[in-house]
C-alpha cells in the first residue's frame, strides 16, 4: 500500500480553490494527460470518479465548518500504465475505518457515505494519512 504521508515524487502540484469551473478544468486536464498515456474507456471512467469523490470529500467533508476560501492540494503523476493522485485538505481529518459500511441493508437508504468505498472499488490502491486529511490513490492499468 502507498504511504499517504509521502508526497508523490515528480508530481504536478496544484492548490485548488472551491470553484467548480477550476475543479472541472483540472480534472479535464488530468484526464487529457491520462488519455495520452493510455487511460481511456473504463480506466478513464474510474479515474474521473475517484478524483471527483476525493475532491468532493475534501471540500464538503474535510473543510466542513471552515472557511470556503481554504484551498486543497492536489498532486498527480501519470505515466504509461500508472496513475497516481493525492488530495490533501486543511481540515482536522477523519477516521476512514470508522465509516459505516454503506452496502449493509440498514444503510442502503442513507444518502451519504459512499465516496470512500467508490474510490477503493475503482482504484488499485487507496490510503489515508494518520490524520485523515490526505488521501493517496494509485491506479495500475491491468496490462501494466
Amino acid at each position: 500500500m502507498p504511504d499517504a504521508n509521502t508526497h508523490i515524487e515528480g508530481a504536478h502540484v496544484v492548490d485548488l480553490a472551491h470553484d467548480r469551473d477550476a475543479i472541472t478544468a483540472l480534472i479535464e486536464q488530468i484526464l487529457g494527460v491520462a488519455e495520452q498515456n493510455g487511460f481511456g474507456g473504463s480506466a478513464a471512467f474510474a479515474i474521473r470518479l475517484a478524483i471527483e469523490e476525493a475532491i468532493t470529500n475534501a471540500f464538503e467533508h474535510g473543510h466542513k465548518g471552515l472557511s470556503d476560501d481554504l484551498t486543497i492540494r492536489v498532486e498527480h503523476r501519470i505515466e504509461p500504465g500508472v496513475f497516481e493522485f493525492a488530495v490533501e485538505d486543511q481540515g482536522p481529518g477523519f477516521q476512514p475505518s470508522a465509516l459505516p459500511d454503506p452496502t449493509l441493508l440498514e444503510n442502503l437508504s442513507k444518502p451519504s457515505g459512499r465516496g470512500v468505498m467508490l474510490m477503493k472499488a475503482y482504484m488499485s490502491e487507496v490510503s489515508f494519512n494518520a490524520q485523515g486529511n490526505r488521501v493517496k490513490m494509485r491506479y495500475i492499468a491491468p496490462s501494466a
Binding site: 474521473r48 469523490e53 468532493t56 437508504s109 444518502p111 459512499r114 467508490l118
Partner: peptide
C-alpha cells in the same frame, strides 16, 4: 455518462 456518490445520495433522498 458519469455520476458521483453525491448524485446517488440525491437519488436516495428522492426515493425516500
Amino acid at each position: 455518462d458519469h455520476l458521483s456518490s453525491a448524485a446517488l445520495g440525491a437519488l436516495i433522498t428522492i426515493n425516500n
